[in-house]
């Protein structure tokens, strides 16, 4: 960080991290306060959470301090569309598994969306590639390793 980057403005990223750490610390203290079982000998189950919570609070305050001083390193500008494509790909994968569409479709969705995030536009070709990859993994897992992957309509064909 160059000293010339010191601006009177508050560094939003550092502020957000600081507040997040304080929130995590508060959550930990609240959760720990609700614990009822104690240890008969030695130190109890609350000591470690309180120590970690205290540490998080301290780090949160230090981040707040950093927010008005140096701030965090400024990252490169973000290609938001790419990131959004990848996140929706992963979300689609989770939805496919959660709602019973099976692993092969889930893999195809994630594969296509990620390839799109990296600039590919041949969605159909990538979809086919993703399906093939999902199918290959599925067959290896179920037929060779006898691990069960999430089932869906496609999986029942094999």
């Amino acid at each position: 960080m160059m000293p010339s980057n010191r601006t009177p403005r508050v560094d939003v990223a550092a502020l957000a991290v600081g507040l997040g750490l304080l929130a995590a610390s508060a959550m930990l203290f609240l959760d720990t306060a609700g614990m009822t079982v104690t240890a008969v000998y030695g130190i109890g189950p609350k000591a470690m959470p309180y120590a970690v919570g205290g540490g998080l609070a301290l780090l949160g305050l230090l981040h707040l301090l950093a927010a008005v001083r140096d701030g965090l390193p400024r990252p490169d500008p973000m290609d938001a569309a790419s990131v959004a494509w990848m996140i929706s790909g992963l979300a689609g994968l989770i939805a496919c598994v959660a709602f019973g569409f099976g692993f092969i479709l889930a893999a195809a969705v994630a594969f296509t969306a990620t390839a799109r995030a990296f600039g590919r536009r041949a969605l159909l070709a990538d979809g086919a590639l993703g399906l093939g990859m999902g199918l290959g993994i599925y067959l290896i897992f179920t037929k060779l390793l006898t691990l069960t992957l999430p089932q869906g309509p496609l999986e029942r064909l094999f």
Partner: peptide
């Protein structure tokens, strides 16, 4: 509901 954890 395939939230089943299946490792057979």
């Amino acid at each position: 509901r395939t939230s089943v954890r299946r490792v057979a």
